[in-house]
Design a protein around this nucleic acid. Structure first.
Lengths: 87, 87
DNA sequence: ACTACATTTAGATGATTTCCTAAATATCTA
DNA sequence: TAGATATTTAGGAAATCATCTAAATGTAGT
């Protein structure tokens, strides 16, 4: 969970997750949504992957990224717990 | 929200929030739960405050910190949205 | 095998973050 | 007002992070 929280701290990475919520995308397609260079996006994708927030799968020349919601569900649980009144 | 996500990226700060979930505490009481020096804890408290995750109120010599859940509710909403299937 | 395309890896740099010590500020009590 | 306690502010060092360019890797098509 610590890796996930750290990954979520960066706005570019949250934006990437939001893009992937709409549909799966290749690294290149993702990069096209930002002004940042491709290696930087690749780096962000790697951090998201380490945090298990996304999954990658090669399809020919492309690497397709998709959301993995299980860790986000854990985080959701954390927030629910924190918001809960007492005990 | 960006400040909140950044604040939540640090494990010490998440631990502080968890302590404050149990009960309101003074800066000193909070610091007693960590091996870190007090100025460092004060710095973390300040970041949490900037992010509006906590509220402070002076009571005599002490400054009492307490949770402010409204921003965490926003974050909860963000996760709910991200987890949601489509649309 | 060669070239083109998609992506990552490596290495460098500047910005930010975390933590420390020392000093300042605020409050209480005698 | 002087001394004690609680907390913050200031300033600095070391670690981490975000980004870039250049080079390497993997895949496809001719």
């Amino acid at each position: 969970m610590n890796d996930a929280f750290k990954a979520l701290a960066d706005p570019t990475r949250r934006q990437i997750l939001m893009l992937l919520k709409e549909r799966d995308m290749s690294a290149g397609e993702i990069a096209d949504h930002f002004s940042m260079k491709k290696p930087s996006i690749s780096h962000h994708l790697n951090i998201l992957k380490q945090a298990q927030l996304i999954i990658d799968e090669r399809q020919g020349q492309n690497i397709i990224y998709s959301l993995n919601t299980s860790v986000m569900q854990e985080a959701l649980g954390w927030f629910l717990h924190m918001i809960q009144k007492n005990n």
